[in-house]
Simulated scan of single mutants.
Amino acid sequence: MSDLRSSYDVVIVGGGVVGSATAYFLASNPDFTGSVLVVEKDWTYARAATSLSSSSIRHQFSNPLNVRMSMFGTEFIRQFPELTAVDGKGDDLALHENGYLFLANDQRGSDILSRNRATQAACGAQGVLLTPREVAVRFPWLNTDDLTLASLGLAGEGWFDNTGFLYGLRAKARALGVTYIEDEVTGVTGQGGRVASVTLKSGAQVGCGALVNAAGTRGRRIAEMAGLYLPVEPRRRSLFVVDCRTPLPGRVPLTIDPTGVFFRPEGRYYLMGTVPDPDPAVDPDDFAVAHDEFEEQIWPVLAERIPAFEALKVVNSWAGHYDYCTLDHNVIVGPHPEVSNFLFANGFSGHGLQQSPAIGRGLSEWITYGGFRSLDLSPLGYARVVSNTPFLEEAII
C-alpha cells in the first residue's frame, strides 16, 4: 500500500472482468495519459460473477445494440492472445463456437425468433432459422414433436475460458501501468456535484477525477455511498454439471428450451441451469446452491426434450449471482446526469462477461473524449432510470 498515490485520474471500484476491461481499454488508448486505480476486495475472485458464470457468448438478441456489443466481444476474444500479450505471451481463450440453439413451441415464440433473426442479420450476425424437421436432421438427439421453429447461431457464439479472460485483462492492464490494490471502498465523498474521493477499508482516502462503479452485485451500495439510486440487486443462479450415460453425438450447441432451461457441453459432461421460479433478491454473500431447481425445474424439462437425459448424474454444482437490473434486465452504463464523473457499469443481468469488452471500450472513450465513439451506448444510460423507460430486449435468458 506504500506506493498508493493520494489521487488518481480514474478510480475503478471492482477489479472483475468489467472493471479490468475498462482499465485495459483506458491504458491501451494512446490518447489517455492519466492514472488509473482499480480497487478489488478479493484477489482470489472465488465469488466473482466471472468465475461462477456459464462462460458463454451469443449474438442472438432482439436489440441491435446488444447484438453489436456481443459481436465485438467475439472479435475481442478471438484476438485476445495478441491484444493482451505480456512479454510476447498471450493466452488463447479456447472459444468453442458451437452456437446457441433457441427453440420455440408456439406462434408467439416463432414470431419472436423470426423478428430477432432479421435484426441479427442486419447487424451482420450469422445464423439460420430451422423448421422442426431441419432441427431433427441436424440434432437427432432432440425431441422436436412440439416445436414450431428454432434459431441457430452459425458463428461467433459459444463458450470460452472465463478465468483466463479475467486474468489476461488484469495482467495486461497492470503491465500497461494500471495500479491494482486489494481493498474495499467504504465511502464516497462528493464536492460541488462531483465525486471528489473514495475512502478505503484500510483507512486511506484517495482523490479521483472520475469514479467507475464496476462493483457487480455491490454496485447499488457504491451508488448509495454517493447518494445515488441504482435499480440493481443480486439474483442467484445455480449451475449443475451432469454426466450422461449416452453422450450426445455431433456438435452440440448451447440449447435453450422454450421454458428457459438451457444446457451446453462441458468437456465430457454437460452444464445446465434455468431462471429460478420464484426469483427473489438474495444476500450478496449467499452462494448456497438451490438443488431443488435441478430436481423440480431442470431435469424434468430436459428429460422430455432430450431422451438421453432421462438418466443423469450430477457431478458438480455451484451458485453465482447476477447483478440484476430490475428496470429491464440490461446494463446501465455511463455518467449520472447530475454527478457527471460518477460512471455506471452495472446491472448486466448475466451478460457482463460477453459485453465487458464493449462496455470497457465505451467507458474509456467517455472518460477520454467526453462521449462514446465506437458504439453509441447512450440508450443504455442512466436517463432511462430517471424516466422509468425500459430498454427493450426480448431475448432474455
Rank of each mutant, 00 (worst) to 15 (best):
N98E: 13
A21D: 08
L83Q: 09
K201A: 11
V333L: 07
K41N: 06
S53E: 10
L101M: 05
C244A: 15
G190K: 15
S7K: 13
D31W: 13
Y324A: 12
G250Q: 09
S35F: 09
A85R: 10
D145N: 12
V385S: 06
W141Q: 01
P357Q: 11
Y382F: 00
A204H: 13
A171G: 09
G193H: 11
P247E: 01
H59C: 02
R58H: 09
R108W: 11
L130M: 09
G156F: 01
V17Q: 12
G192M: 07
G219T: 08
S70G: 09
Y24S: 06
E224H: 13
S374G: 06
V185I: 12
S110C: 10
L377K: 05
I359A: 01
P231N: 03
W299L: 15
L377V: 03
R108K: 15
P234K: 13
Y369S: 06
D328E: 08
S7V: 10
A94R: 15
T119F: 14
D92I: 04
A94S: 15
S349G: 04
P276Q: 07
G209P: 03
G381F: 05
I306E: 00
G99V: 01
E182S: 09
G109H: 05
P278T: 01
E304G: 15
E393N: 02
P247M: 03
I396Y: 15
G267D: 02
S35E: 12
G14M: 05
Y270R: 00
V339I: 05
E295P: 10
V282L: 08
A303L: 06
S7Q: 14
D9Y: 03
A173W: 05
K89R: 13
T179I: 13
G193I: 02
R361S: 04
S197V: 09
S35A: 14
F309Q: 00
A303K: 05
T368I: 00
I181T: 08
S7M: 10
V18I: 10
A395M: 11
S151L: 09
T326N: 04
T246G: 10
T119M: 14
T189W: 11
Y269H: 11
I367A: 03
V18L: 11
S356D: 02
C208R: 03
C244Q: 12
V135E: 05
G347P: 08
M69G: 05
D279F: 15
A136W: 07
G260L: 07
P379G: 02
P357K: 12
Q191L: 12
A288V: 12
L95C: 02
G164N: 04
P247K: 02
L113T: 14
G99Y: 01
Q79D: 15
F32M: 09
P234L: 14
C244W: 11
G19D: 08
E338W: 11
V386E: 06
P337D: 06
V195W: 11
T368K: 09
Q107N: 14
T50G: 01
L363Y: 02
F348D: 04
I306G: 00
F240S: 04
F76L: 03
S51H: 12
N98M: 13
G352T: 07
S151C: 13
E157T: 04
V212Q: 02
V195I: 12
S28F: 13
H336M: 05
A214V: 03
R237H: 04
A122E: 13
R236Q: 08
R47Q: 13
G360A: 02
